[in-house]
Amino acid sequence: MAPLLDVNNLTTHFYTQDGVVKAVNGISYSVDEGETVGIVGESGSGKSVGVMSLVRLIPTPPGKIVDGQVMFNGQDLLTLSKNEIRAIRGNKVAMIFQDPMTSLNPVLTIGRQISEAVELHLGMDKKQARNRTIELLELVGIPSAADRIDNYPHQFSGGMRQRVMIAMGLSCNPQLLIADEPTTALDVTIQAQIVDLVKRLREEIGMAIIWITHDLGLVAGLAQKMIVMYGGNIVEQAPVVDLYKNPRHPYTLGLLASLPRLDEDRPKKLLSIEGLPPDLVNYPQGCPFYARCNYRIDKCADTPPQLKEVGVKHKVACHVDVQTAKWTTEHPYEEFNLM
């Protein structure tokens, strides 16, 4: 069966005064119906631009999708007309964003903001849309929804606002929900509640999810498949268990090493990956992770590694096999800067 979403060589650049920002550089992946895919990577690695390109929400100019295909239900979203893509946004493909404080319009009631999508895509009249909105608010666990529908965003806490955002995202029964760091701005306890809520709703509605985060620990219990992004590229992609048990990219190793683990007697010192992400304007000629890689070899400096299969559904873009190779340098970034 064809996947619900099939992304092929998606490439998005920003044409700015400082040069061309190569934010997303030919990423390919697929999402099956009902599947949850986690995308991780440090900030600036192109996660948001990558998913916003799917429904063409990139500000143009300066942004431009310069290459690729986004097959959704057999249609290439990148070739649809403006009206056609609008009919999909908020309908079959919904998005929720990082900061629930700024993602809701402060001068419109939350009821209005949810029902406008329902009226638009499901063709409901005002009254039906209002009833549906109350149902949705109840569904996402807003207490006394019927009373709160006419409240403004500032009358809700951060967690409640993110619930409102989720209600909005699910209002038209999407086939795909894109959640761009939906918990990053929230307290840890609230984060867990939101994750649980999404899990429950996924069971009820059965939509596929792309869940972006820079917190590997958070998606572990949620996703079936993981994608690791670095410098606008996918550097590793694997079923979730595989990725945690058997990481194959030095960057993934670094991400996992920087995660506190409960299954170790004594927590080892938290590591963070030394150095800065690559300059997206003067993009490195070879591997984008070269500057920060403990395993780098000469080849990495000038030949960009391609994503290749290393296990069942497990792909990695690296010239080195980290399972057998030894570190070639202790402090890659310092040495890189001296080079």
Binding site: V55, L57, A87, R89, T102, S103, L104, E116, A117
Partner: peptide, 13 residues
């Protein structure tokens, strides 16, 4: 440029 304008566009308005 505000986030909620992006939200509105993401709704398909």
């Amino acid at each position: 440029r505000e986030d909620y304008i992006r939200t509105a566009r993401a709704k398909g308005l």
